[in-house]
């Protein structure tokens, strides 16, 4: 927890730009969005923006971020770009993936 606080403190003045790619209102997409929302409010302290991109509506947008898996969460900012796939139900993995929490050292 201590490390996480440091991390958020370090990038406190940055806005997190997150993009969630989905394909229609599937259960997995809905679950992913709900999980993301929960994690953001809990750890990002309001300094974030979530764009939900539905590839069924804008299929051409999937190319830029090399989206194959659905749902995929992309962290555009802060750099570097990070990708997390799945419905984000595993909060630990999402936190590690977004660099909110460092990888646990075995």
């Amino acid at each position: 927890m201590h490390a996480a606080k440091e991390k958020t403190a370090k990038s406190s003045d940055e806005i997190w730009e997150l993009r969630l790619y989905v394909a229609g209102q599937t259960p997995k997409s809905l679950a992913a969005f709900a999980n993301l929302k929960k994690i953001c409010t809990e750890y990002l302290d309001g300094k974030y923006r979530i764009d939900v991109i539905d590839l069924l509506e804008n299929p051409q947008l999937g190319r830029g971020d090399q989206i194959l898996a659905i749902p995929t969460l992309v962290r555009n900012l802060p750099e570097p770009i990070k990708k997390i796939i799945g419905d984000l139900s595993n909060t630990e993995k999402v936190l590690v993936g977004l660099d909110i929490r460092p990888r646990s050292n075995p």
């Binding site: 790619y21 394909a23 997995k28 679950a31 992913a32 999980n35 590839l55 999937g62 989206i67 194959l68 898996a69 659905i70 749902p71 995929t72 770009i81 990070k82 990708k83 997390i84 796939i85 799945g86 419905d87 984000l88 139900s89 595993n90 909060t91 993995k93 999402v94 590690v96 993936g97």
Partner: peptide, 12 residues
Amino acid sequence: EIEEAGEYDLEG
């Protein structure tokens, strides 16, 4: 670049 966190498919 990819972290896996839950169920997904290759709809993309």
